[in-house]
């Protein structure tokens, strides 16, 4: 079984946690996420122009780049994480230009070497799959696709074609870390997606509290939290790890104890 399959086969729903690589003490924060109970980790690759992100993650990207974080540093962080945590799925999340600048094959090979399980490329829709998709699939790395409130039923098969790992449902049409979607719309969307795919469905964008996470976990296989972690790191800098771990535990407790309802 892949690490994703194992993570989503647990007897509870999954907490998918995002932090930006190179912002704060990333190794310590990653350890804190695992210790606090995160089931899947998304590591953000910083980019100068994160046009799908809200202010919190934009600032994290710029903090990381200002410290001189390179693509090589991100792969070193990932490889070291894999050494310390052999079982926790690790996803690289970022933008197309840093991922494709040396060619899709190079990027896929580096992911394989570092023990990365999946990749989310924000500005690479199914129509431009050729940049990265074939190389990743050949290297055994899952390309995780995004579905959004604007992805209608006619379009969904194109999004799912070539998708792997899990399906990330972006619950609001907007940028990261802003408002949360109405629960009813999430329930409806997840039911629609689950009818169309066997992939686990994780829901994110705008999820900031344990209460919101618990609500979503009643219908979705996973809940993605990003900006709220990034805010903690912004506040506490290199000493953020204990705070990250405490918040992770709060979220994980809520998500892991959520009772499934028929979607």
């Amino acid at each position: 079984m892949t690490r994703f399959a194992t993570a989503f086969a647990k007897p509870h729903r999954a907490l998918v946690a995002f932090i930006t690589g190179g912002d704060g003490d990333t190794a310590a924060n990653l350890d804190a996420l695992v210790a606090g109970g995160a089931d899947v980790i998304e590591l953000g690759m910083p980019f100068t122009d994160p046009m799908a992100d809200g202010p919190a993650i934009q600032a994290a990207n710029l903090r990381s780049l200002a410290k001189g974080t390179t693509t090589a540093d991100i792969f070193a962080i990932a490889a070291a994480f894999r050494q310390r945590h052999p079982d926790t799925p690790l996803v690289l999340m970022g933008y197309a230009n840093p991922m494709t600048i040396r060619g899709g094959d190079w990027f896929a090979a580096e992911c394989g070497r570092a023990g990365v399980d999946g990749v989310i490329c924000v500005d690479l829709p199914a129509e431009e799959d050729g940049e990265l998709g074939p190389a990743l699939r050949a290297a055994g790395v899952d390309l995780i696709r995004l579905a959004t409130p604007t992805t209608d039923t006619a379009r969904l098969p194109a999004v799912l074609d070539g998708a792997g790992g899990f399906l990330y449902y972006v619950s609001v049409a907007g940028i990261t870390g802003q408002q949360q979607a109405a629960q009813a719309s999430i329930d409806e969307a997840v039911a629609r997606l689950k009818a169309a795919t066997d992939l686990p469905v994780a829901v994110g964008f705008g999820v900031r509290t344990a209460e919101q996470a618990a609500q979503i976990a009643r219908v979705a296989d996973g809940v993605v939290v990003g900006s709220a972690f990034v805010d903690i790191i912004a506040r506490h800098g290199d000493a953020a790890a204990p705070h990250v771990e405490a918040f992770t535990r709060t979220l994980a407790d809520a998500i892991h104890s959520a009772k499934e309802i028929a979607a």
Partner: peptide, 20 residues
């Protein structure tokens, strides 16, 4: 038809924008 001028151009946008 996919918006390419030779190897350039294309549609590199978030999924939310793609249907639009």
């Amino acid at each position: 038809s996919r918006g390419h001028f030779g190897p350039f151009g294309g549609r590199y946008v978030a999924e939310t924008l793609m249907p639009l």
